[in-house]
Design a protein around this nucleic acid. Structure first.
Length: 615
DNA sequence: GCCGTCACG
DNA sequence: ACGTACGTGACGGCA
């Protein structure tokens, strides 16, 4: 269907006519200081539009739009000031841009579009349509890179160094205070750069077979993540603050005990001072070194706890300190003044495997273990009249291992719904399923996890506190019983050596540069990455697919339920109580059928007034 | 700004 | 002989 709608972006000519400036050297960045100054879409349908938003502040839920830079063809970028000037056009600008940005038929080009989308929502503009995000394109082309800023990508693909932001900012408090002509030169550069990068990067995506992954998965996910970030999650401020005080009292007691046992007062949080106390004053044996001294990590202190009472108390203190400083003290301060909720950022271009990450704050590492973990999760609550639903994939990585390895025994076990750790234990110890003891199952569970990480006999021996020889025997027995897994690992490493990269089920690629290294350690490390990445990455592909499908269903069916968090194999929803039953069925349907594997997918669903109940 | 440590999957 | 399980982010200490 051919698009017939036409836009005259700046047909409102109520402002004074102005001749666009042509900067020296003919650099085609033009600087109208009024919205009406320069029509850039005066004829014909707009086939695509690169844009970039300049805003006040870094919080996309509070920042206002200072101006929007636009580019519809290479070499002609414009800046539309919105907060820079006063006058009749200032308030019209968003209204003139809205029909273009909201038109689902017009593709939008930009770098980190989720951010611009969220800021534009503060102006009441809801961006729609296909998104060509150059940051995501760069990420898919090489997820190993440490960063994908517009600066990074511009330098790599166009050898283009951006004008430093500090140049335009100078000593000014905000971009909005910069003279419009200066602001234009800076702002329009971003839109133009994204426009230029788009063709290069999207040609490369096609070349690399990453187009489907981009257009079917990562691009639609932008809208899902924007909604999740905007929704945020509610916490019970008083409950968490009370918890902080309680943790403080507990820590006081532990601290006093530690000083008494140690016979001196010192900073328990200083590994350096702790080393002096443990290894000098008390004369305990250091078990392991770090780059800077002796290790006081949890495994060392666990071992030392067998011969002295202090290490156990240090561990207890550290647990409370961690929970207090990272969660109990911090979360209440992050409640957004406008929404009353906590809003994380889901980062789509960070991990090497395809997973998301969460930051500012990280809501993917909220404590779950122990009584204190439960207490903190009780502080994550549903809004009035709502419930939280937690839906998590059961044994997802092992199911994916079963699928991609094609191992007959593993596939058979999952198809029959057999407890996989019990089954592995029976195979490792040569007993029947009924004869598997709790301890045998514990060992099998560690082996199952280790397999997906490419573990060594030594690694397993450390995890199980057994000898490397025994550990090696378990591994040999595992591969004897699960020869499909053994062959998968061998094939994956071989393929990685030949191609220099590994792939997930949906074609996501991760370069493994050290796979043929002459340095044995680097090579072995690379082999572990090669083994693990297709598993972890396919799990990421799967849950991202489920997120998009579920989100679309929620829209289609006009549900009020919202997806609020993703924690790698779990989705958290906030649901009006009246939608609870419908949602449980919908979520299960979408998550269990997101991809078709040779084994069934199983999703465990819980619900409640808070995250502890729902989990 | 790095390091060690530890919260999560 | 070697170091030793995959992926993250945030905190306090210290230079």
């Amino acid at each position: 269907m051919k698009k017939t709608k036409q836009y005259s972006l700046f047909e409102d000519n109520s402002g004074p006519e102005r001749t666009p400036q042509q900067p020296p050297g003919g650099k085609a960045v033009q600087s109208p200081d009024k919205v009406s100054a320069q029509p850039i879409a005066h004829t014909g349908p707009l086939s695509e539009l690169a844009f970039d938003v300049e805003s006040t502040g870094r919080d996309p839920l509070s920042a206002s739009v200072v101006g929007i830079s636009l580019c519809r063809e290479k070499g002609r970028a414009y800046y539309v000031p919105i907060r820079h000037t006063s006058g009749p056009n200032v308030h019209k600008a968003p209204n003139i841009l809205r029909p273009v940005l909201e038109d689902a038929a017009i593709p939008k080009i930009g770098h980190n579009l989720k951010y611009d989308i969220l800021i534009l929502r503060q102006e009441g503009i809801r961006v729609n349509g296909p998104l060509y995000d150059t940051m995501l394109a760069s990420y898919l082309l090489n997820p190993n890179k440490p960063g994908h800023s517009l600066e990074d990508v511009g330098v790599e693909y166009l050898s283009h160094k951006k004008k430093p932001f500090t140049d335009v900012l100078g000593k000014r408090a905000s971009f909005a205070e910069a003279p419009v002509d200066e602001a234009t030169l800076y702002a329009a550069e971003d839109a133009e750069l994204a426009m230029e990068l788009k063709d290069i990067l999207f040609d490369a995506l096609k070349q690399e077979g990453l187009e489907r992954l981009y257009f079917d998965l990562e691009m639609p996910l932008i809208y899902v993540l924007a909604d999740m970030e905007e929704a945020g999650v509610k916490i019970d401020k008083e409950k968490i603050e009370d918890l902080s005080k309680e943790l403080d009292r507990e820590m006081e007691i532990l601290q006093a005990g530690i000083y008494r046992i140690a016979g001196e007062v010192f900073n328990i949080n200083s590994p350096k001072q702790l080393c002096k106390v443990l290894f000098d004053s008390l004369g305990l044996k250091p078990l392991r070194k770090t780059k800077t001294g002796y290790s006081t990590g949890v495994d060392v202190l666990e071992e030392l706890a067998k011969v002295h009472e202090l290490p156990r108390e240090i561990l207890n203190y550290r647990t409370l300190h961690k929970l207090k400083t990272t969660y109990a003290d911090t979360l209440p301060k992050l409640i957004h003044e406008r929404t009353g909720r906590i809003h994380t950022s889901f980062n789509q271009t960070v991990t090497s495997t395809g997973r998301l990450s969460s930051s500012d704050p990280n809501l993917q590492n909220i404590p779950v273990r122990g009584q204190w973990g439960t207490r903190i999760r009780e502080g994550f609550i549903a809004d009035k009249g709502n419930m939280l639903i937690s839906a998590d994939y059961s044994q997802i990585e092992l199911r994916i291992l079963a699928h991609i390895s094609g191992d007959a025994g593993l596939i058979d076990a999952f198809r029959k719904g057999i407890d996989i750790h019990t089954k592995t234990a029976a195979d490792l110890f040569g007993v029947s399923g009924e004869a598997v003891t709790a301890d045998m199952r514990r060992v099998a569970k560690v082996v199952n996890f280790g397999i997906a990480y490419g573990m060594s006999p030594y690694g397993l021996s450390e995890a199980l506190n057994i000898s490397p020889k025994e550990a090696g025997a378990y591994i040999d027995q595992y591969f004897h019983k699960y020869s499909g897994v053994r062959d998968y690992i061998a094939d994956t490493v071989k393929t990685a050596k030949a191609l220099g990269h590994v792939s997930t089920m949906l074609g996501r690629k991760r370069p493994i540069p050290e796979i043929n290294s002459s340095n044995a350690n680097a090579r072995l490390q690379a082999e572990r990455l090669a083994i693990n990445t297709p598993i972890q990455g396919t799990a990421a592909d799967l849950i991202k697919t489920a997120m998009i499908n579920t989100w679309r269903k929620l829209k289609e069916q006009r549900c009020e339920s919202r997806m609020v968090l993703q924690i790698h194999d779990e989705l958290l929803f906030e649901t009006p109580e009246g939608e609870l039953e419908k949602m449980k069925a919908l979520i299960r349907q979408e998550m269990e059928n997101a991809l078709t594997l040779s084994v069934p997918l199983k999703v465990d669903i819980g619900w409640g007034k808070n995250w502890a109940e729902a989990h």
